[in-house]
Design a protein around this nucleic acid. Structure first.
Lengths: 219, 219
DNA sequence: ATTAATATTTAGACAAATCTAAAAATTAAT
DNA sequence: ATTAATTTTTAGATTTGTCTAAATATTAAT
């Protein structure tokens, strides 16, 4: 597996909803910021190696082998993100780019030991589940902040939009992973929320609320 | 800097005694297990980018810029080795190959944070000094086991020959980094040594003794 | 000081991953 | 059901790092 092949597999995995449906060539080109012709070339190679099923003009579908490969890469990516955030004090908006490099390091022992060192985390700093050694994916036991009702409480465990700008915004407003959140009330007018975050009052737009994952605390 | 360029710079650094003397093309080819013609090609590129000084048929000499680049790579390599050995419980004969990959990760912040996380180590698991952020290299305050005299004591802190076979050998005989060593006597016949290692008697050939670094404990 | 041996470079080719421009297939629109 | 618009593929070129084989320079040996 070359680095480039791995990146294609990963992109296809994400675009296909975890290998559920097939993906058009152009979507891959857009996602990876390359030309469609390059995608066609690479797809042929991946098809020869049986990572994907491919019929000309009909898009690509990940094979079983392709899905497992994708999960391995994603496992590595997310474990490294946890390492960077938990051990090296990176902010959650800084972990992605470095993890993008680290995910290509080849050593099974390294990943198993890292997993152990981090205490077998289930979720990465964005709240995304970390695939297990055998590819099993934990369900997110989460809900969006926007789906919560007054008086409900929870812990902020992830973001839906993991763009750098959103993560920067959260840092600026002192919203961090692990923060305790309680809903005070919901404005009827624009569905914005008044919340208590770590006991401090804060007003939050609907837009933001639909991008924050909360692990609910039962009342 | 491509990965390949970095590997050449590193090889030249080691072969030239830290940039002291110049290095013939063939030596680089041998060290890197490639063809001399490939070396010539790469050297031209490195020369264009001013990492090395190069006169046809006269070998290569690292420039100031080249030396600094080499030190940065070596710093990364050795810090990762410490991480693998100290935090992930790798044996010292297992750290090299993985560090060889990790040394190419590009992120200054990552390395600085890693350095801090590891408590600013001065030496890697083989006893080699770790270059500082500004390229300064600690002197080894070490001596070879073969240079020690009866009754002297010390701590085993490194190996000179870091080949996998030697490291495996040490593992097998339960000689580990940090072990306490006391010289009992030296055989006149073959200069082999009788030592006490962690209070257990052991007979060691001269060959081995010349490849183990000891930090002496003043009597 | 030639000649022989060795080291180094040049020239030309190749595989991987990409690109541009043109051709072909599919889909959408009338 | 054609035609137009869009998507996808093909063909051919480019860059990076490598190789082999041949040519050239340097060094060692007589």
């Amino acid at each position: 597996m070359t680095r480039s092949e791995e990146n294609y597999i990963k992109a296809i995995y994400h675009l296909s909803g975890g290998g559920m449906h097939s993906v058009p060539t152009n979507a891959i080109a857009t996602q990876m910021d390359t030309q469609p012709s390059s995608v066609t070339d690479m797809i042929k190679k991946l098809s020869d190696k049986e990572y994907v099923h491919y019929k000309k003009y009909r898009g690509v579908h990940l094979s079983e082998k392709g899905i497992n490969t994708a999960l391995t890469i994603i496992r590595k990516h997310r474990l490294w993100e946890v390492f960077l955030a938990d051990k090296l004090d990176f902010n959650w908006d800084e972990v992605h780019d470095v993890a993008e490099q680290l995910e290509h390091i080849k050593s099974e022992k390294l990943i198993d030991k890292l997993d152990e060192f981090l205490d077998f985390p289930k979720y990465d700093p964005h709240g995304d589940p970390i695939p297990g050694k055998n590819g099993e994916l934990a369900q997110r036991s989460l809900q969006l902040l926007s789906a919560m009702k007054p008086e409900e409480e929870g812990i902020c465990v992830g973001v839906k939009d993991s763009s750098v700008s959103f993560l920067k915004f959260l840092d600026k407003h002192n919203i961090a992973l692990g923060d305790h959140i309680k809903i005070l009330d919901v404005e009827e007018f624009d569905e914005s929320l008044n919340i208590l975050i770590e006991s401090k009052k804060l007003h939050i737009s609907k837009r933001i609320a639909t991008n924050l994952f909360i692990k609910p605390i039962p009342a």
